[in-house]
Nucleic acid binder design. Structure first.
Lengths: 305, 305
DNA sequence: CTTGACAACCAAAACGTTTTGGTATAAGAT
DNA sequence: ATCTTATACCAAAACGTTTTGGTTGTCAAG
């Protein structure tokens, strides 16, 4: 039983049309009528039905975002902060944000289709772009509005925001090389993710520059989680000739790696150097504080939105 | 240009009514017609307009959740996991989840009002209940559907899910007392939060039971963040007679406290014991692993939803 | 034959907006 | 007196559903 335009119309003795137009400040409504309507609306606590507006306007004022997560429970600070950035920006622009989580695959794509066809969202935000990305291909083909955080391999004629993963990792690697490390281990991300490759290439570039060879046996494939990082680091540090430094593809894995190093009796920052990527809040509270690359995740979220 | 009922009606040569009723399996539609309609709908890729359905049904099939966060950027694993639980459950029930963040206060309450009046949501999920909670008072008074995670002081004739904070902290305290600690510091949560008090009372109960007196000078008020925990612990450990154990109200603050202890030269688990609450994934990867109370946050999220 | 019951169908209303395409009145121009 | 222009207003259509309250045949029972 919320207040409708009709209620106001009855009260002020005008038509629904006039009330609507008054509230939208059209200039074929007299000043007095406008004032009258405004006041009545105010007093009655009128708030337009968003559903009715959406139906009539043929848009939902809603932005969709499907988080690609394996396993239902996730708690990645990266996503929290990104969502916060997107969400606050969206709210400030009068847009709703519809978030769901779906493991990559057919179900994921179907979620996109469903949300589009049912008119639930006006556009999508894509995160964690993959080297060849079905989601982007689909949206691109159907001409549905979207913005991606990250690019895909080759194709990039679509709207995106991206960080320079390559350069970030290059700088980090140079830093380690500058400290005298020559045997550098690496925990990369899932190979299908575009930035995994970018970051790996950044490392290779740096190595190449100082004439070192990239050693594939020192590079493990991680899964971006803390537990994954722990396991990967355990393996690297148990080698006959363990690396003296480990570059992880993100902070979460780096923290897991630090944990493993500790467990195996290495003193981080002395026996072994470990670096991350993202600069999540947790990073500064590890022992010692994690060396990482700052990525303004919140701001990126806002920008993408 | 999505497919509408009318498109299907035209194709099968029946009325819109019949098509609608066929799709909903009403029994005043013949079997043949049903089959015909179903097939046509399938072939044409019909997906009903959720907006139109919502307008007609007078409900939004959307659950609202306003996260109370100070500062726009937050990254609390507690919230991520809770959202995941709620979100996945909601999705499996065909409900949308509308998340926003708002600092506690007038704007927050207004967000509730707006979302209700505009018909954007059918019900709310309330998190981090406060000892006296305006949100609950408002929803209760207006008779708007909601479920809270947590109770309020005194009043509890509303639907809620809650954990036994008191008992959890009691057990944790007993554990520390059993280890021989007699000087126990504490970093509590914001006093307006209901569980802060519950947890504090749990500690007091345990102390009382062994005949120790609760020392207010050893109890600081935290803000539930890692940085906050760091600062609080710094203060406690800089006392002339620092405590030999610190109980933090949640894991995030406990991790911050561990960080501070390290920094000040204490060896955690030896010179000082530190405990948390929640059992976030991060907890098992600290050095040493954090002693904490497990709370099945994801499952609670599902349950509340 | 009628009557009643039943099966299969559908036109129209409703949900609450916004927009379209008007009309009525008054004032000024011819 | 007639035409034009501007001002203030509004009925009706539209958005895409679901539901209400029918109507039309057909067939068996009386």
């Amino acid at each position: 039983m919320p207040i409708t335009l009709e209620d106001i119309a009855k009260r002020v003795g005008k038509s629904i049309t006039t009330v609507s137009r008054a509230l939208h400040d059209y200039d074929d409504v007299s000043a007095e009528t406008k004032a009258l309507v405004m006041q009545a609306a105010d007093e009655m606590g009128y708030i337009p039905s968003s559903t009715a507006q959406r139906l009539q306007k043929r848009r939902s004022d809603t932005i969709g975002m499907v988080l690609p997560t394996f396993g239902p429970r996730f708690s990645d600070p990266f996503f929290s902060e990104f969502i916060a950035g997107v969400g606050n920006k969206a709210a400030s622009m009068g847009q709703d944000l519809l978030v769901s989580t779906r493991p990559p695959g057919d179900l994921e794509l179907q979620t996109y289709r469903l949300n589009i066809q049912s008119g639930r969202v006006d556009g999508f935000i894509i995160v964690r772009t993959r080297r060849v990305d079905e989601r982007i291909k689909y949206l691109h083909e159907t001409n549905f509005p979207f913005v991606a955080f990250g690019r895909t391999e080759g194709l990039d004629d679509f709207p995106f925001v991206d960080e320079d993963s390559h350069h970030g990792m290059y700088l980090l690697s140079k830093h380690l090389l500058g400290l005298g490390h020559t045997r550098i281990g690496c925990i990369s991300g899932p190979p299908e993710l575009n930035f995994s490759n970018q970051r790996l290439e950044g490392i290779k570039s740096a190595l190449r520059e100082v004439g070192l060879e990239y050693d594939p046996t020192l590079c493990l494939q991680g899964d971006m989680t803390q537990s994954g990082g722990y396991i990967n680091a355990e393996e690297l540090l148990s080698l006959d000739q363990p690396p003296t430094a480990i570059i992880a593809c993100n902070d979460l894995m780096a923290l897991g790696a630090m944990s493993a190093a500790h467990k195996l009796g290495f003193i981080v920052g002395q026996d072994i150097s470990i670096t991350g990527f993202d600069d999540i809040p947790m990073a500064e509270h590890s022992h010692p504080p994690l060396t990482t690359v700052n990525q303004p995740i919140y701001d990126i979220g806002e920008m993408v939105c």
